Simulated scan of single mutants.
Amino acid sequence: MSRILEGKAAVVTGSGQGIGRDIAICMADLGARVITNNRKPGSSLDAFEKTSLQFNDEEREALQKVKGDAQTTADEINRSGGEAIPFYGDVSDFKTAEKMVQTAVDHFGRIDIIVNNASSNWVGNIMKMDEELWDTSVASKLKGAFNLMHHALPYMKEQGFGRILNSSSDAFLGLEGYAAYGAANAGLVALSKAAAKDVAAHGITVNAYTPLAKTRAWYNAVATYRLQGVSKEQVEAVAPEAMKETAEGMVPFLAYLASDSADSISGYLFKLAANGEIGVWSDSEIISEIKQEEGVWTIGELEKRVPGELLKHLKESGSKLPLK
């Protein structure tokens, strides 16, 4: 097996289970020494904040198999001959993020790779969201990424090498039921693109990606829909194929981005799917435009030209299985 990350030190947040766990294990297999992380020992079956779903036996059994925390992931890496240290703490706390980076530097002598994978989420109508849920969703994803970047970048600049990988989501498009999560992920895309420009002269790359794979959230979604009268078969019929497969097969791409070989790849947003698809998202661009040649717009002109010209060829997208 290639050891393209030999000698490098990585921090992978939210790596107790799910995609983060697979990223940490993959990078360790390829030679990196890894700090694994989640907020606290143990894990919950519930993937979404402030939820307590009544899982059936099949769902509960599947969730028990994917449970884990920073210690269990580190143990698996160490048993396989790699080197990993668990770190418990919430990355949305500025001082905690600093301690996490310092742990890597103290134990490994450097910090080369940051994978900002940690996030919190709540699914539901924006009218039911409270301030605490908003703050948790945005802070864990967006502020957490900034915190790790802020503390790691001085070391990376001094080394002349750094790789930052930020886990976003296609929720940045504005998916129904994912208002705060979508806002945080849209912010993370902008953060990644701006930071890539800021650090380009220092041998540091910054990229974001939208992963899609079967995780704890999949089983939670299935249970949520079941409780609303939607069967597992109905959910599977409309779900992307990548959500039916676990993440092991897609994470090598992230290891590649973290390697010396990807030194010219920065500022991109990649699509990464468990069924083997890798893509690049386009940048936003104006796709339709109208112009008032003289004077100011009148309401009458807008009422005519907005639907008749500006929005004529656009279609509104919507979810097929809305969560209530």
Rank of each mutant, 00 (worst) to 15 (best):
K50R: 13
E59H: 10
T51V: 05
K40H: 00
I25Q: 14
D46F: 07
A32M: 09
D29V: 10
N38K: 10
D22R: 06
R39I: 00
G31Q: 15
L30N: 06
K40I: 02
I35D: 12
V34M: 14
I35Q: 13
T36K: 14
S52P: 02
T51L: 11
L53C: 04
A47G: 05
E59P: 04
S44E: 01
R33M: 15
R39S: 00
R39G: 01
E49V: 05
I25L: 10
C26S: 15
D22N: 05
K40N: 00
I35S: 15
I35R: 15
F55Q: 01
N38P: 04
R39C: 00
G20D: 04
D29P: 13
C26D: 14
N56Y: 03
I23Q: 05
S43H: 01
L45E: 07
V34D: 09
T51C: 00
R21S: 14
P41M: 05
S52C: 01
G31T: 12
D57Y: 02
L53W: 10
E58Y: 11
R60W: 10
I25W: 09
E49F: 02
N56H: 01
I25S: 12
A28M: 08
L45S: 12
M27H: 03
G20L: 07
G31C: 11
E49S: 04
I23Y: 03
A24M: 08
C26E: 15
F55P: 03
S43D: 03
N56C: 09
F48N: 00
E59C: 02
R60E: 09
P41E: 07
T51W: 00
I35G: 15
P41D: 04
G42M: 12
L30I: 00
G20Y: 09
Q54D: 00
S44K: 11
F55M: 02
E58S: 01
R39N: 01
A47L: 02
R21D: 11
C26T: 15
N37I: 01
E59S: 11
N56Q: 01
G42H: 13
D29T: 12
I35N: 11
N56G: 03
P41F: 11
A24I: 08
F55Y: 04
A28L: 11
Q54E: 08
R21Y: 06
A24G: 12
E49A: 03
L30S: 05
D46P: 01
Q54N: 11
M27L: 14
T36R: 11
F55T: 03
A28K: 13
A32F: 06
G42N: 14
S52H: 08
L53V: 07
P41I: 05
R33I: 12
A28T: 09
I23K: 09
E59Q: 11
L30T: 04
A47Y: 04
E49D: 10
S44M: 09
V34F: 07
R60M: 02
D22Q: 04
Q54M: 09
D22K: 03
T36Y: 14
K40T: 02
A28E: 03
N38A: 04
D57G: 02
D46L: 08
